[in-house]
Design a protein around this nucleic acid. Sequence first.
DNA 1: GTTAGCACTTTTGTGTTCAGAGTGCTAACT
DNA 2: AGTTAGCACTCTGAACACAAAAGTGCTAAC
Lengths: 337, 337
Amino acid sequence: MDDRKKKILQAVIDEYVSSAEPVSSSALVEKYNLNYSSATVRNELAELEKSGYLDKTHTSSGRVPSEKGYRFYVDELIKDDDISLEEMKYIQTKLDAKVNEIEDLAKIATTTLSEITHYTTVAIGPKPEKQIIEEIKFVLLGSRMLMVVIVTDSGLVKETIIKYDEDITQNQVETLNNLFNAKLKGKPLSKIDKPMEEYILAEITYSVDVIKPIIEQINRIVEEAGTIYLEGANKSFDLPEFKSLELAKNFVNVLDEKELMLDILDSGVAKDINVYIGDENDKEELKDFSVVTFKHSVGDKDLGTIGIIGPKRMNYSKVISVMKYISKKINESKKGE
Amino acid sequence: MDDRKKKILQAVIDEYVSSAEPVSSSALVEKYNLNYSSATVRNELAELEKSGYLDKTHTSSGRVPSEKGYRFYVDELIKDDDISLEEMKYIQTKLDAKVNEIEDLAKIATTTLSEITHYTTVAIGPKPEKQIIEEIKFVLLGSRMLMVVIVTDSGLVKETIIKYDEDITQNQVETLNNLFNAKLKGKPLSKIDKPMEEYILAEITYSVDVIKPIIEQINRIVEEAGTIYLEGANKSFDLPEFKSLELAKNFVNVLDEKELMLDILDSGVAKDINVYIGDENDKEELKDFSVVTFKHSVGDKDLGTIGIIGPKRMNYSKVISVMKYISKKINESKKGE
DNA sequence: GTTAGCACTTTTGTGTTCAGAGTGCTAACT
DNA sequence: AGTTAGCACTCTGAACACAAAAGTGCTAAC
C-alpha cells in the first residue's frame, strides 16, 4: 500500500469517525487538503475497496471503513499522542485527588477515561486469587459490632461488619485476630473452604454463632473483590449508531451481563493494550462494537484491567493515547507510596 | 362523580397504563366487561373529558388520562394490595440476605423495588447532619496505614484509609482515639470546621502531617454519606414513551444530575408516601414524569428516602403496594437488631 | 498519471391517496 | 330517563409516486 493510499485511508477513517456518515471523494479533497481531484481520489477509493479496506452501503454511496480498514489503521496509522494539553491537565488533577484506597484510584481512572473519551468504560480489579492476604484484623465497634478488615499485598483493603445479639469481649477479639492471622496470612485471597472452616471451628472453644457469620462475610468479601464497575453507560446514547433504540437496548443489556464483561476484560493477553474490532470479539453480542482493554498497575502492583466499549467507529487514536497517558501517570505518581 | 364514571375512569387508566395507547370506548367495553354499549361509554367519556379527567390526542382519537385523572386515581381509586404472592416472597428472600451494614440494606431495598416495578429507583441515606457520632475509631493496618471508622447512632458505619510515608506508633493511635472521641462523640456527623480543626491541631503535640489528612478524609466521608444511588436506569428504555431517543437522553441526563435528585428526594414532606404527577413536580425537567418517594426506617432509625421515577403512565397501584410492603418488612424483620 | 464531465444509481424528502380507527350526534328504542 | 344503533365526520398512518440531491464509475481529453 503506497503512501497516498495510506493517507486517503486515514482521511476516510478520521472523517467517518467524526461524522458517522459515508465519506465522499469530494469531502475528502476539501477537508483533508489532498492535492488531487475528486476523480483521482475516487480511483484510489475504488482500489482500497477492492482490497477490502473500505465498504459501501450501496452502489452510489460514499465509503465506509471495513473492519480490515480499522485494523490496518490501528496497526499502522495510529498516532499515540492524540491528547491535548487540557486533557493531560484534567487527567493530572483527577489523579492527584487524595485517595488512599487502591480501588478508588482504579475507579477514578475508569471515570476519567470515560469522561475524556466519551465512551463507556468498565473495569475489574486484580483477581482475588492472585492477591496475598497481608493482614486480617478484627475491630470491636461498640460492644456488639465486629468489623473485619482484610489487607492484601496489592494494597486492597476490604472490610465488613457483623452485628451480634450478645456482647463480644476484647478477649474474643484477640483470639480471633490470632487465629485468623495464623491461618490466613500469606495465603491467597480466596473463599474459606470446608476443611479450613472445620479447622477454625474446631480451634475455637466458644460459640459457633460467633464464627459462622465471620466466615460467611469473609467469603462475601472475596466474591465482591472480583467485582466490575461501569462508567458512562449513558454516553453511548449520543452516538448516531444508536438512533435505533433497538440497538441501544441491546447495548445496555450487554453491559448488564457481568459475566460477559468479566470474560472480556480477562481475555486481554499479556500485551499492554488490546484492541478487538467488531468480529474480532469472541462474544457474539459484541460483533458490532469495538473493545479496547488495558491492564494498569502501580509499580509492580496489579491494579486490574480497564476496558472501553464503543462503536467500531471509535476514535482509536484518542482512546489509545489517553489510555497510555493515564497508565503512565498512575504508575509515576503513586510509585513512591 | 358517580360509581359508573369512577369505574370507567379506572378502566381507562388501567388500560392506558398497560398499553400506552389511547383507549377507545369499544376496547373498554370488551376488556372490562362493562354492561353498557360503546355508545354509552362514549357519552361518559365525553363528560369525563369535559370535567378534565381525560384528554384526547386529536379529535377522533381514544382517551388518555390527564394529570387530574391520575391524581384522582391515586387519591381515590388506588388499591394498595396490588402485589402477588410471588412478589412478596421475592422481597422476603431479598431482605433476608445477611447484610449487616445499614447502607447495604437500603441498597437492597432500592434494587428490589426497581426489579419488581421495572422502574428506575433512586435513594439517599439519612442526612449526615441528623446522625449522631457514636464512636470514632482509629485502627493501624500494617505500620503505615491508618483506618478511620465512624459509627453513627442510625447504624451507619463509614471508614476510610490514610497512607503515611512514616511509621505510625500504637501510642499515636491511642492519642488519636482519645482526642477525636472526646471532641466528636455525641456530635452530629458534619464536616470538621476551621475552629475545630485549629483546636485539634493545637491539642496534638506531634506532626501536623499526621492530622491534616485525617481531617481531610473525615470531611470526605461526611460528604459521601449524603450520596445517592440509582438502580435500573436502563429499565426505562423499554417504555414506549422513550421511542423518541430525545426523551430517553433527557431522562438519563436528569438522573445524572445528583443535585436535582437530592432535592427531589428531600422535598418529600412528612407523609410516608408522596406522589408527584407530571406538573406537580417542582423541577422543570420532571414535568413529563411522575415521582413517588417514601421514607423508610428500622424501628426509630431513619434509613433515608427511596424514590421511583417513571412515566406519568405509571402503575401507581403496584408501585405503592410494593413500597408499602417493603417498608413494612424492613421494619419488622430488623427491629430486633 | 490526472482530471473534467456526464450518465447512472440510490437515498431521501414531499405530496397524495386511501383505508382504518374512533368519536359525536341524531333518532329510535326501552 | 337512560340507553343504544347507526352513520357522518375527522385524523392518523401506511403506501405510493415523483423529484431533487448526493455520489460513483467510466470515458475521453489533458
